[in-house]
Design a protein around this nucleic acid. Structure first.
Length: 202
DNA sequence: TATGAGATCAACT
DNA sequence: GTTGATCTCATAC
């Protein structure tokens, strides 16, 4: 049986539950996409979250119902894709940081002007360019075309770490990744396993 | 491998 | 006017 689609109830939970559950899920946009390998959770109590300072025209979608896309412009250049989650008092969302390209490789390469698969979607701005996601898709619901989200079939090994690319609340360990994936935007720091003292793969 | 400039927009001081 | 949930390219070691 085919993987189940993710519907709004999946997102109507705490970002801290939704974010790790997204690792291994499949994200398609107009048939182009792949497996989610890296996300970050942004809770409204977090100074680094866009919703922290209250509602503005840019972040208004975050304050709406769960299960919608929040797309914003980063550094004036790039687009970044988030999934709106449950409002635990105020708005929260999960930033999609990297996917493993699986479907529509030719279109991704054409949009990105690159051949190297590892660089197609390994970063929030890169994956939006590869999938053709832009500001006009802000507010789109995630369980209807052009979006399609499929639940993972097995729980993968997930690594956690501090978030990157931010300057506030950098210490919060709310970055989640698929262990040993070659498609992460940056490697997770080496983790010491207490029992054996061995390092995991970066 | 590592650092630095530049691109360019919404929010904030 | 400055900063930021970024990326690419250039230049230096």
């Amino acid at each position: 049986m085919p993987p189940a689609k993710l519907h709004p109830p999946f997102f109507a939970r705490s970002v801290h539950k939704v974010a790790p559950d997204l690792i291994g899920a499949t994200l398609l946009f107009d048939g182009v996409g792949g497996r989610i390998v890296e996300v970050e959770a942004y809770h409204h109590t977090d100074p680094a979250a866009h919703s922290f300072g209250g509602q503005t025209p840019r972040n208004a979608i975050m304050f709406g119902p769960p299960g919608h896309a929040y797309v914003y412009r980063s550094y004036g250049i790039h687009w970044c894709l988030n999934f709106v989650c449950e409002r635990e008092g105020s708005a929260s969302a999960v930033l999609i940081r990297a996917i493993e390209p699986l479907e529509g490789l030719p279109r991704m390469r054409r949009r990105r002007g690159l051949k190297d698969e590892r660089l197609l979607c390994s970063g929030p701005g890169r994956l939006c360019e590869a999938l053709g996601i832009a500001g006009i898709h802000d507010g789109f619901i995630l369980d209807r075309p052009p979006f399609e989200l499929l639940a993972r079939t097995k729980k993968p090994e997930i690594v956690t770490g501090v978030r990157i690319g931010i300057t506030k609340a950098m210490e919060l360990p709310w970055r989640y990744g698929l262990k040993a994936s070659k498609f992460l935007s940056k490697p997770f720091p080496k983790i010491v396993t207490p029992a054996r003292g061995r390092r995991s793969d970066p």
